[in-house]
Structure formats: structure tokens, C-alpha cells
Amino acid sequence: MATQTSTSTSLIQIIRPAIVSLVIFTIITGVLYPALITGIAQVVFPNQANGSLIKDANGTIIGSELIGQEFSDPSYFWGRLSATGPVPYNAAASSGSNYGPLNPSLIGEEGIIQTRINALRDADSAAGVTNTAPIPVDLVTASASGLDPQISPAAALYQLPRVAALRGTDEASIRSLVDEFTEGRTLGLLGEPRVNVLELNLALDERYPLVETSE
């Protein structure tokens, strides 16, 4: 083999390439690469690159397609539980609940699941609805990010009677709205079917505005 052997290398012969290579790789991968991606992204995919923001007619930002918001008003569909602090769906501090599977704060009588079940039941009875269907698991558990924008179709359909009653319309109309906002698996295969809660609620307000204002 015609390779040269460095039998005795002094430390300085290593420190120089170490420093110079780190500087050069920092410029390439830490400056040029993110700048290149940002430049292309801002031109080709400006909507996605800036957070898939939703704006109202006045151009005010009212949310993001990808970031959930807290809904506790019974006339809206509710999303996943959010464990972010100090308020739910804090999109500047994502977090899961990190409760272990047997933690009383999760499964106990005062736990987040039972509290949510009670809230759902109370909302139903306040709306004059009898709902005996079993509650879908994703409607009473916290998402990983605390920002999950979606719920399962089952979780949306569970809330159908309540929302229809409070919006003063029949279940079939709301059902077709839910179907409209249900996204299937990608290519019929990947991921899970899901409903975007914020988009669904915005459509509710538009098509079935509340007859009487609660405020």
C-alpha cells in the first residue's frame, strides 16, 4: 500500500485541523444549510414554513392548522386533553402529561380522565342530551404534545348529539360537517383517521352560528 504513515504526530498537527474543520463545518452545516433551506422554503412553501397559519377575513391570525386550541364551551367540539402549562394548548411550551399508567392523577377519582368524563356527561345533560355511548379513549386522554390538533372520528361522533342540540340543528347536518372535516389514512394506509378540531369548530361558527349568545 502506498499510504504514508504518520508515526509520530504532535498534538498541534491535530489541533489545527480540528479547529479549522469545525469552523468550516459550522459555516456549511450551521449557517449555509439552514439559510438555504429557509430561503427555498420561504419561496416554495411559504404557508407551511411559517406555521400553516389560519387568518380571518381581516387578516388576523386566529390559529394554525397544525396546532390545537382549547375548547371547553359545550357548543364546540372538544379536542384532546392538553397537559401544557400554565394554560392548556400553550404553543410556546409543548408538553405531555407524563403520567405513568397507574398514576392516580391519571386514573383516580380526581384524575384527569374521570374529570373529563364528568365534564362530558355534565355538558350532555345541561344540553338536554342523553348519551350512553362508551367514551372513545382519545377524548379523555392527554396528547403527547399537548397541542394535538385532531381527534379521532369516534371522538367527534360521540359529541355529535350535544353539539347538534346546542347549535339548534339536527344531528345529520352536523354529521355531514364532521365527515367533511374527517381526513382518512394517507393513501388509505398510513397513520390514523382524524378530524381537525379547530377547523371543524370554525366551520360550525360559520354555518351554524349560535342562536343565542352565551355572554
Binding site: D138, T141, S143, S145, D148, Q150
Partner: peptide, 20 residues
């Protein structure tokens, strides 16, 4: 709580998991 998987939900232990 209903944890059964179906065409309408993933089911299972959804605590700390994302819907999608």
C-alpha cells in the same frame, strides 16, 4: 372508556399519544 380499535379510532392506550 372504549379502547377497542375500529375504523373510527385507534383505541388502545392513547395517553401521551397523538391522534394522527
Amino acid at each position: 372508556i372504549d379502547q377497542t380499535p375500529s375504523d373510527l379510532q385507534a383505541g388502545g392506550n392513547m395517553e401521551g399519544k397523538e391522534t394522527r
